[in-house]
Design a protein around this nucleic acid. Structure first.
Length: 272
DNA sequence: TTGTGTTTTACGACCTCC
DNA sequence: GGAGGTCGTAAAACACAA
């Protein structure tokens, strides 16, 4: 605790401004050092009620040192620091935001302030800096979150599109074939306990789907399909296209056996 | 001029460190 | 236990719109 704060303590029991009102409004007079209860009269100025005209908000140190502001009869209201005082304090704060006793004393001497005032100013300045820092951190985190959320929404949309394509293609296949559809196999994957495969081909198809679903999300090596990762390290399937099936059907693909399995292969890759 | 919101100064309570 | 920190708050000073 700063000695000056102790020695000039108002002794008030209320918190904050209550004690402050005792400090500034409770009477008393300046001591021989030109301090009023720990606050130099040069900084306090004089009571507005006892002075003609109001002291300007920012005055120079020299002005503050003028006789007018040394009027000793006035218990004083709170005064703001001068521009010069704030400027020097700011510079000092930039160098080091903590205040060693020697530096506090030196600053107080140079600024014509009580050491306690310098300490309080640094406390408040650190609080303001912290608030600003929190705001900055919040803005940065929010921007990162928004970008991630947008990316996620894009992925969901891609996923929906691909699922729709799978359903469409499966229906096309069912229209041309009597073979069990990929949808049937996919349903089996969703509900593995309900083993509904009734033929060797169907079981093979289902197994193929399972294997693919449990493998990585890689979509390379299958026709024109490709994959890529964004530079944020988040796996994205935005690079995957699904151009093959249309071309496949256009080329007169109808069936069977290995081709069926291959379709299931393509299908399963986009089901998750 | 006045009401209202923001900033600044200052304090007490409480906590941590040596 | 003392020194110095943070935290929460009061109140003055200030800015500004209506």
């Amino acid at each position: 605790m700063d000695p000056s704060a102790v020695s000039f303590d108002s002794g008030g029991t209320r918190r904050g401004g209550g004690a402050q009102m005792l400090l500034f409004g409770g009477g008393g007079s300046a001591n021989s050092n030109g301090f009023f209860r720990g606050v130099p009269m040069a900084v306090l100025g004089m009571d507005d009620a006892t002075r003609v005209g109001k002291r300007p908000f920012f005055t120079t140190h020299e002005e503050l040192l003028e006789e007018e502001y040394y009027d000793e009869q006035a218990p004083e209201k709170k005064r703001r620091l001068t521009a010069e005082q704030v400027q020097l304090l700011e510079r000092s704060f930039e160098e080091e935001n903590k205040l060693e006793p020697e530096r506090k004393t030196e600053l107080a001497r140079r600024l014509g302030m009580a050491p306690r005032q310098v300490a309080v100013w640094f406390q408040n300045r650190r609080a303001r800096w912290k608030t600003k820092q929190l705001e900055t951190d919040y803005d940065r985190l929010k921007a990162a979150y928004d970008a991630l959320a947008a990316d996620h929404q894009g992925l969901l949309a891609d996923n929906d599109n691909l699922r729709a394509q799978v359903i469409s293609l499966t229906e096309k296949l069912q229209g041309k074939e009597t073979y069990p559809s990929a949808t049937t196999a996919a349903q089996e994957v969703d509900q593995p306990d309900e083993h509904t495969a009734v033929s060797g081909t169907e079981e093979l198809l289902a197994q193929q789907l399972k294997d693919n679903l449990h493998s990585s999300g890689d979509c390379t090596g299958h026709g024109t399909l490709s994959s890529e990762e964004d530079d944020g390290g988040v796996v994205s399937d935005e690079g995957c296209s699904f151009a093959l099936p249309d071309a496949m059907f256009a080329a007169g693909f109808t069936h069977h056996g290995a081709e069926e399995v291959q379709l299931a292969n393509w299908t399963s890759m986009f089901w998750n």
